[in-house]
């Protein structure tokens, strides 16, 4: 089954190329800081705003730090935030949506009212507030790090997925194959996770891929507003924010982090697209 999916996936050339690009980014983020000699935190300010050169492939930033090195280190933070927040968000969303859509009745009603409550809570406000509050905590181990941001973003972004999954379950549970499974004596949870969920997978995958990019973007929004991860720890988001005042002086400082966000999110989405094709049993080329 997996082999079949992999074969289908490899036929999706953009997805394969995107996977390659993602792999390069991930490997770069993991390995480059260990291998290359620049310190992302040391600021030889006399070398600031140097255009791209052999010594500094992407140039240096406004404090003379090697931009490429900051991008690799910042990428670690941004990617971890994106993926971890997506996992939290999609897990909660799928669970809530599936239960509500499949069982219906009071459970559906209760979960959907909770969903409404969560949706109606002002997200940006809570994000900003939580980001501020967590920073006034006197816990050096977590404050300033990405963990609080991941949890906040994940816990506040599952409602859309829940509605989507519920909608899918509502339509699919009336389908013949579900009836057939039931007649064959399948338990509820088996019907939900084995029969309905795979059929509802493609919109979930679409939503999940969007979510990774969304989480990276949310971090950069928070950074833009001054509430994200604080310098000197780099993320793609706060690097872009810092570049705002450099756009006319040292455009590379603004362009490269933007490109990396862009490349990573585009690649993630293409991979999602490829997975969608690979998972779709009715897929025809």
């Amino acid at each position: 089954m997996l082999a079949l999916m992999w074969r289908r996936f490899t036929k999706h050339k953009p997805a394969m190329l995107s996977l390659l690009i993602l792999a390069i980014i991930v490997i770069g983020c993991v390995l480059a800081p260990l291998v290359v000699g620049y310190d992302p935190y040391n600021a030889p300010v006399e070398l600031r705003r140097q255009p791209p050169s052999l010594a500094h492939l992407f140039g240096t930033d406004e404090l003379g730090r090697d931009l490429l090195m900051r991008i690799w280190v910042g990428g670690r933070v941004s990617l971890v935030i994106g993926v971890a927040a997506m996992v939290i968000s999609i897990s909660i969303g799928t669970l809530v949506g599936a239960l509500a859509g499949f069982y219906g009745g009071w459970l559906d009603n209760g979960l959907m009212r909770f969903n409404d409550f969560m949706l109606a809570l002002p997200h940006l406000f809570i994000l900003l507030l939580a980001a501020q509050l967590l920073r006034t905590l006197n816990v050096p181990e977590i404050s300033g790090g990405p963990l609080p941001i991941i949890v906040i973003i994940g816990a506040l972004s599952w409602m859309g997925a829940a509605r989507l999954v519920r909608g899918q379950f509502l339509s699919l549970k009336a389908k013949e194959f579900v009836e057939a499974a039931r007649v064959a004596g399948a338990q509820n949870h088996r019907i939900m996770w084995r029969h309905i969920l795979p059929n509802a997978a493609s919109p979930i995958i679409v939503a999940a891929t969007l979510r990774v990019g969304n989480a990276i973007m949310t971090e950069s929004t928070l950074s833009f507003l001054g509430f994200g991860i604080q310098p000197p720890m780099p993320t793609w988001g706060n690097m872009l924010k810092n570049a705002q005042s450099q756009m006319t002086l040292a455009p590379w400082v603004a362009i490269f982090p933007g490109l990396f966000i862009f490349a990573a999110v585009v690649a993630i989405n293409y991979v999602g697209d490829g997975l969608r094709d690979a998972l779709d049993p009715q897929h025809v080329e």
């Binding site: 190329l17 600031r48 705003r49 140097q50 255009p51 791209p52 040292a250 455009p251 362009i255």
Partner: peptide
């Protein structure tokens, strides 16, 4: 990806402004 490449080129060509 050609757009990406273009932006790279743009970034590299951007007038160097030594301090």
């Amino acid at each position: 990806f050609s757009l990406l490449a273009l932006l790279f080129v743009l970034a590299a060509c951007a007038a160097p402004e030594p301090t």
